[in-house]
């Protein structure tokens, strides 16, 4: 088990390195100089070739690419001082660069935006697990009944709609057509500054959208897994032994059924933590996803780089955790 985790960690590090290199090279060899956006910005669009050269030099773009990549990696571990034109910017470890727009260390802004994204992700995931799994179990137990069929087909319908349209409609109807006073001012309001009530009110609709949509999918997963599990031989054995239905369903069936659900959930949740771009864009939540969208539109390369790297790391960790949890839940799986 330990050896397996180490092995997975190594391969994870390898993937992260590869991703970071790919992004680095992408900007380095992009159609325009990677210093162009900052030069344009700082000079109010009067970036001449001479000025661009100054920026390229101080940012190190006239050095060999491997040398600069080395500095970038080193900065992540020990921090560095970045020079942009004649100004020095202190960038402590882990240094992910300095935002071209705000001139603040990217890491600080990333950290300051994490609560928003995490609030969305945790709240949404909580809702869809809370409703998805029990409904799925219930449907599996009543498999084949009218209620089951109606539920399954209506949920199939909802989950076939692209998520962003579902979220958009939720937003339009619940803030514009039928505004709910307390909840229609969506956005992220930190608990520390605005109190838990405002925080809850601002995020509620985003959670509802994410929750309902996710719930339909998790109901289907859970139902499918439950149906599968309940048709296993050991369940028949348990029934034959005369165990109470409750025990059969929840102790034997659900435990087996949860395994695939946990797997999917782990990856899903990782994706959410890495940035919920559509949810944040639609509900105006200033989290990591919206930030990366704005960074792309504002050509803020260090931020684009950092958000891509961050999400890769989160997804890799999520994958690893899922595999570990999988082996714990399902004794048949041996990690090696």
């Amino acid at each position: 088990m330990f050896a397996y985790v180490v092995k997975r960690l190594i391969s994870g590090v390898l993937v992260v390195t590869l991703v970071s290199m790919a992004i680095f090279l992408l900007f380095w060899y992009g159609p325009s100089s990677p210093a162009q956006p900052i030069c344009d910005r700082e000079t109010s669009n009067r970036c001449t070739q001479t000025k661009l050269a100054v920026y390229e030099k101080t940012l190190g773009y006239d050095n060999p690419v491997y040398e600069e990549y080395g500095k970038y990696v080193k900065g992540i571990f020990v921090g560095r001082t970045l020079t942009i034109a004649s100004n020095d910017y202190e960038c402590g470890a882990p240094c992910l660069g300095v935002s071209y727009r705000t001139k603040q260390p990217v890491k600080e802004e990333l950290v300051s935006r994490m609560p928003a994204t995490f609030s969305v992700a945790i709240g949404g995931a909580f809702l869809y697990l809370l409703f998805g799994v029990p409904i799925g179990v219930a449907a599996a137990r009543r498999r084949g009944t009218v209620a089951d069929k109606a539920l399954v087909s209506s949920f199939l319908f909802i989950s076939s709609i692209p998520y962003y349209l579902f979220a958009l409609l939720t937003w339009l109807y619940l803030t514009i057509t039928f505004p709910i006073p307390f909840f229609s001012d969506t956005g992220y309001f930190s608990i520390a500054q605005n109190g838990p009530l405002k925080w809850f009110g601002g995020l509620f609709l985003a959670w509802v959208a994410l929750g309902i949509f996710g719930c339909t999918q998790y109901t289907r997963f859970t139902r499918g897994a439950m149906v599968e599990a309940l048709s296993e031989d050991y369940i028949r054995t348990a029934k034959a032994k005369g165990l109470p239905t409750r025990t059969i369903v929840y102790k034997h069936g659900l435990r087996a059924a949860l395994v695939p659900v946990v797997t999917i959930f782990g990856i899903d949740f990782g994706t959410l933590l890495a940035g919920t771009i559509f949810t944040e864009r639609i509900f105006d939540i200033q989290g990591i996803g919206y930030w990366s969208l704005q960074a792309v539109q504002g050509r803020d390369l260090p931020v684009v780089q950092a958000t891509a790297l961050f999400s890769a790391v989160v997804l890799i960790i999520a994958n690893l955790l899922v595999d570990v949890v999988y082996s714990v839940l399902d004794p048949r799986v041996r990690l090696s």
């Binding site: 162009q36 956006p37 344009d40 109010s44 669009n45 970036c47 001449t48 070739q49």
Partner: peptide, 13 residues
């Protein structure tokens, strides 16, 4: 263009 037109207009090169 994907950037401010000024970036284009003001750069003779």
């Amino acid at each position: 263009v994907q950037e401010s037109p000024y970036n284009i207009w003001l750069d003779p090169d």
